[in-house]
Design a protein around this nucleic acid. Structure first.
Lengths: 349, 349
DNA sequence: GCAATTTGTGCAAGCGCTTTCAGAAAAAGT
DNA sequence: ACTTTTTCTGAAAGCGCTTGCACAAATTGC
């Protein structure tokens, strides 16, 4: 007779051991579910007394509205799809951190998917995410054509890096590639190097092209000769860097410094140099790009260009939320900065 | 008069420019929505003819059911929450890849969140994810107590690494820490080293303790003296490794080899050694643990223990899906394997 | 003091899909 | 030929929350 058991007038949901819902809260607070929803969303005026009753009930039952149901009802999921090319990339990983961070602050949640640098997977990811009704999409580079991006942006606003599209529903965020590369190359020049090799990234990659452009610009500024043999192409990976470097070295092209267009290929290049018995920085000065965390700990620690990719992630997050909520994003450009460590030194030849 | 415009009998949804729904498909196929659902889920017998009609309609309209609605209706979201401690960790990043990969194969989608190694954030993540109605949870290590894990597993099954809990709703996956550490240490011993330092991880960390245990076991096997001064504690980070190493070196403790309990701290240790003018492997042999991708490219390339963390991620994914779908997971132990590179050599003193 | 506003609230109809239930049609028994 | 079974199918009631609408109550205007 005592005890809270078996009040018997509830019909139990068939499948789910249903937890606590808005109806329950409403009953507890002695109001209708509508009112509960209203205080939850502040979507309409609610009298002080009832508001408090509802808040009390919510607290007491520690009720949390189901994002699923909210999503279905409102058509907004407070979720942003994030397409990265490889979830374990040390470079984009930092961007993901920034995105997660900032999205959290803004009350959104990221849904990550990996595009593996292939168009096919990128497209698969996009439709997967759009199917899940994400409110917006952040795409970290990848090889999608601008047209494709614009097309997909019809369903969902997009913030993208490494592209040049702009549009009411697509916002581009770009790294400070050109300036950064110029900085790096100038640094080498200022150390007295004149034959500076460039380990480029994949040429179909916007960032890669910009970095080469910066390298060339720096050479041009000082009217240094631009020997095309000095530019070798890797694929932004350590293996690629190593292979390209082997090739350059085996061809016996003369150079005293190397600008690697990203740190990962710099790692590979360093190994190649090591295998060829060349010491960094004594024989060859090396500067990288991206300033990966680990570059502080390579031997020797790598001089590199920091473009605060973490901040780029945060900006992307802010931008997509702006877009989703109908605001025009504001660009906060983060400037590239050269971090001089121990892999570069004065040209002694 | 011609053209497909304004058929006028649809009432438009208020907020969403509603795309194509099951009802539309049903109408197109001349059946009821129930039937559409049935062919979608294979949840009941449907006559050959109608099935084909429905399938045709689905294809024609390229209809994709809304996971949101399905989730709400079925109480299952085909989503697995994944709590990693830092989304950009090079080590766990590989696990994430494995998880994403395998989950994709099994028709699930990961929802990642970062616990930042703090209990507070881990708990926040768990409730965030459970609120989002994930079907299950994968937790990559982190410092949660077994009790806490068990508690949270009531709402949702959990697969966790770096713990020892087992239970009908919690499944533990563990790395081959002990064996791996033994392998690493034995390798050093076999090279004639007798004073082998150990750069340990944080002692409140299960994996870290197991690795020390393996190190000790290897020494014990050969009845080598165990000097407690030879064990220094880092925090599994490069900085920590560097600091710990500085300390050891400054204390002038004699040793000819170092077993770093993870590669990241090995990187830090290597830098410390370099700064102290000690060469790897000539002066000190170094072996790491985890075999991070970059360890192939350190100078010199690092000998390390590979525990195929990618595979661990896949196993975790399979396990959680098993749990979610009511099966008992089967353990596929992945054995640790020593990868000998160039950071270790015969003791010459 | 009564009409015209201005709140504040609940009802009910969705959002897009699943699933129980009951009945129609077809197949199988006798 | 007439029950019994078995197969299919659609209607309708959810899943948990939001929101347009209508109406009662509280204000305000004159």
């Amino acid at each position: 007779m005592a005890g809270p058991a078996a009040s018997g007038d509830e019909k139990t949901a068939p499948h789910i051991a249903s937890s606590i819902t808005a109806d329950v809260v409403a009953r507890e607070a002695g109001v209708s579910p509508s009112t509960v929803s209203r205080v939850l969303n502040g979507s309409a005026r609610v009298s002080e007394s009832r508001r408090r009753a509802v808040e009390a009930a919510i607290a007491k039952l520690s009720f949390e509205p189901s994002p699923l149901a909210q999503g279905l009802a409102k058509g907004k999921t407070k979720t942003i799809g994030v397409i990265t090319q490889a979830i374990s990339s040390p470079f984009y990983g930092e961007a993901l951190r920034g995105i997660e961070d900032q999205l959290g602050v803004l009350g959104y949640m990221p849904l990550f998917a990996s595009g593996h640098w292939t168009n096919e997977d990128n497209i698969r990811c996009i439709s997967l995410l759009q199917k899940r009704r994400v409110d917006g999409l952040i795409i970290l580079t990848g090889g999608l054509s601008d047209d494709a991006v614009i097309k997909y942006s019809q369903r969902t606003p997009i913030v993208i890096t490494g592209h040049e599209t702009v549009n009411r529903r697509v916002f581009s965020i770009n790294l400070d590639n050109y300036e950064g590369a110029r900085l790096a190359t100038r640094h080498l020049i200022s150390l007295g190097h004149t034959r500076i090799a460039c380990l480029a990234g994949p040429l179909d990659h916007f960032d890669a092209r910009e970095r080469i452009r910066g390298y060339r610009a720096a050479l041009a500024e000082k009217e240094l000769p631009q020997d095309p043999n000095l530019i070798v192409s890797g694929n932004f990976s350590a293996v690629g860097g190593m292979l390209a470097m082997n090739q350059l070295l085996d061809a016996r092209i003369e150079f005293t410094a190397l600008f690697a267009c990203n740190d990962q290929s710099a790692y590979g290049a360093a190994l190649s140099l090591y295998r060829h018995g060349l010491r960094i920085p004594d024989d060859i000065s090396l500067v990288g790009f991206d300033d990966l965390y680990d570059s502080r700990f390579t031997l020797p620690p790598l001089t590199s260009v920091n473009i605060s990719i973490f901040e780029v992630g945060r900006s992307a997050a802010s931008a997509i939320v702006d877009l989703v909520e109908g605001r025009q994003p504001t660009v906060r450009a983060t400037a590239a900065e050269l971090v001089v460590r121990e892999s570069t030194t004065r040209n002694r030849r």
